[in-house]
Design a protein around this nucleic acid. Structure first.
Length: 235
DNA sequence: ACATTAATACCAG
DNA sequence: CTGGTATTAATGT
């Protein structure tokens, strides 16, 4: 068993403002874990035996509707916690978590949650702030789904992804993990057909560039226009 | 070279 | 305009 370096955690949002001994203490209970692309980190309904910190990669959180329909709730980027069912008083996971790219994570057994939180008040406030952020995000998304048209929603989704995980290239901003039209449709409540049509439309206009599992954003401001409903109206 | 899976084209409601 | 099926294109083995 190799020793884990506390500098892995230093500077990450959940551990902001914590000193070296505290980080070492938290790391004692963690074991590293590596998940290949498309592997499940945990499944909806499963007993929440562990909680996780994503060190590298991306995982998508997918909610399964009773009829088998899938909805992508959010993407988790590196440095974020996931599977913290215990923090909201649950003992089963509320959704599936799937590696969107090859991932490396740290896993803690869930029973350590209580002791870590009570031993480290800074960690507690950080994670509750994070939960609050996520709550606001999902509220915004509800409003979006209820009030905006499809083109606005997918424009928003693309912008969000580019913003959250964009990598600069000569072409523009590349979303640096594999993303299919199906994925985008599951984020925005449409079908892959509509997403495909919109994306190729924008590609002809020169606003984005897309190929299999890849989307690069070239003219972000144009998409912002679409997202705000100021463009693309047709009759 | 083949099988698998994503993206687009095509067609129907 | 949306949703389903077929065809084509890309990717992994």
């Amino acid at each position: 068993m190799s020793r884990l370096d506390p500098s892995l955690l230093a500077g990450l949002p959940p551990f902001m403002g914590m000193d070296q001994p505290a980080l070492e203490h938290i790391l004692e209970g963690a074991k590293p874990l590596r998940q290949p692309k498309n592997a499940h980190v945990f499944r909806q309904g499963e007993e929440a035996h562990s909680f996780y910190l994503l060190l590298d990669g991306y995982v998508r959180v997918v909610k399964l509707a009773p009829d088998g329909e899938q909805v992508i709730v959010r993407f988790i980027a590196s440095g974020e916690l996931l599977g913290i069912a215990k923090a909201i008083g649950r003992d089963s996971y509320p959704a599936n978590a799937v590696a969107a790219a090859d991932c490396v994570l740290l896993a803690w057994p869930s029973h350590l949650w209580e002791s870590i939180v009570s031993a480290h008040p800074g960690f507690a406030t950080n994670t509750y702030a994070m939960l609050g952020e996520r709550l606001l995000e999902t509220q915004d998304k509800v409003v979006e789904l209820a009030t905006e048209r499809v083109e606005q929603r997918v424009a928003n989704a693309v912008l969000k992804l580019a913003n959250q995980s964009g990598r600069k290239t000569e072409e523009g901003t590349l979303i640096d993990f594999p993303i299919s039209r199906q994925d985008i449709s599951e984020m925005t409540g449409t079908t892959l057909h509509t997403v495909s049509r919109l994306l190729s439309g924008w590609e002809h206009a020169g606003w984005v560039k897309s190929s299999r599992q890849k989307v690069t954003l070239m003219e972000g401001h144009k998409l912002v226009m679409v997202a705000s409903g100021q463009a693309g109206r047709k009759s």
